[in-house]
Design a protein around this nucleic acid. Sequence first.
DNA 1: AAACAAACCTGTGCGC
DNA 2: TGCGCACAGGTTTGTT
Length: 283
Amino acid sequence: MPELPEVETVRRGLASRVVGRRVEHVEVGRERTVRRTSREALIAGLTDTTIVSADRRGKYLLCPLDSGETLMIHLRMSGRVLVVPAGSPRPPHTHVAVRLAGAPSRPPEELWFVDPRTFGEVVVYDPDRVAVELPELARLGVDPIAEEFTRRQLRRLLRTRSRQLKQFLLDQHLVAGIGNIYADEILHAARLRPQRPSDSLSTMAEARLHTAVLGVLNAAIEAGGSTLRDAQYVDLFGSGGSYQEAHRVYGRGGERCLTCGVGWVRRIVVAQRSTHYCARCQR
DNA sequence: AAACAAACCTGTGCGC
DNA sequence: TGCGCACAGGTTTGTT
């Protein structure tokens, strides 16, 4: 479910509400959520630490702790992070509950990790041993809204090897954070077909793609991400995003294209993912 | 090497 | 109203 804009929205919530606070107590329900290590390891790694900052790389949330270790949360398909007043009734599938100490002007709160499908995970790891403890994180590609994601960088990556643009955008080892929704929206904005070989783009088309990546992701962050019908994704405080209202192709298979008004949005399968595009305006 | 399938889970929406 | 099936925002692992 959550892609870069949703994870970034959660990160901002953590930065404003959780950073600087001390962890008093940790409960782990379902052990699958902490499968990378163990229930005991998460409790020991978090209890009596203070969260120093809230960072993100691709779809990974990274919260360095004053212990020198880092809390990593990945939402995968259905994970949510919520902050609620301490003692609030817990919804089903609350797998981790962290009590944050109160302060003179601040009531104690709890940070929950809620995840019906249990694909998500929570782990405390040693950043000096990231290659061993979280190898995927160590191999992650460039974050597309970071400064180093330049047109030149994109061009280099596109030409490393020829593959379909959709597959290119979804490959977290190349560019980290784009998922199925935003890949389709980005390619529509860039007027490029998902099946187009990545090494076949003109300089102009590469520039359009670069602009589309930044434009779509930043607009989606601005809108607080996309919350689909099932309302799976919400931010730290339980609010949904509104970028779904700006989707031009995702979930619109069979409808007339909103951009050209002439073509029809097709739904096909590319790189084993449902893919939406306008055959008229995307080439 | 690359394409594809399956796996991990639960919930929801649809057709009948 | 109920039932069964297809399908879902992600990622890894295993198989052709």
